[in-house]
Amino acid sequence: MEERNINEQESLEIIATMIEQTREKVIRQAGMPFLTWGYTTSVIALLIWYLIGTTGLHQWHYLWFGIPALGWPLSIATRRTQKKGYTTYVDRSVANIWLVFGTTVILCSVMAFFVVQMPILFLVLLLMSMGVMLTGLVIRFPVAIGFGLFGILASFAFLFIGSLHQILYFAVVFFLMMVVPGHILYHLTRMKHV
């Protein structure tokens, strides 16, 4: 682009193109928490399910704390490598959604482990599904809204499933709810720029 006068039609095209390109970048960035937390949680849940299933030792449940221990550094690392070059209200809203839901999930997990018994996998999945759905609403991405709703509905099944199968079911639902929309989001926006 250069400094030159334009006609009215070109003006409209410039405005539309610039706004749309910027929006696509913002949306693609919003998909990163889905991938980071989706993969971390699914992989650790599968690991716990496998280890308890093969050894019978319930101490493997302490590995749940590996999710924040691994997820936070990964989140920080991906933010640093992305070097976006801009900030938006959408960014801030999405970050705040995950801060609130993430903190609540950690608090619930600590309470469930050390203070009082509660259906923790049900609560975690319900809270994270709400985070996915809210993010979808903020960035106006129907796939995330749909998968978030799916997660909310699926979480209620945890109230009826036996303990070890709960963990496998949790890993699968989490993968579907976060990793799948995260990849769809990333590829959709990437394809438009190829």
Partner: peptide, 20 residues
């Protein structure tokens, strides 16, 4: 605003809080 580059810059800045 009725110039290609300045209009493009303003269109980007209207969609974000800040940009480098």
């Amino acid at each position: 605003l009725h110039s290609q580059l300045r209009l493009a810059v303003m269109s980007i800045l209207i969609s974000v809080e800040s940009a480098d």
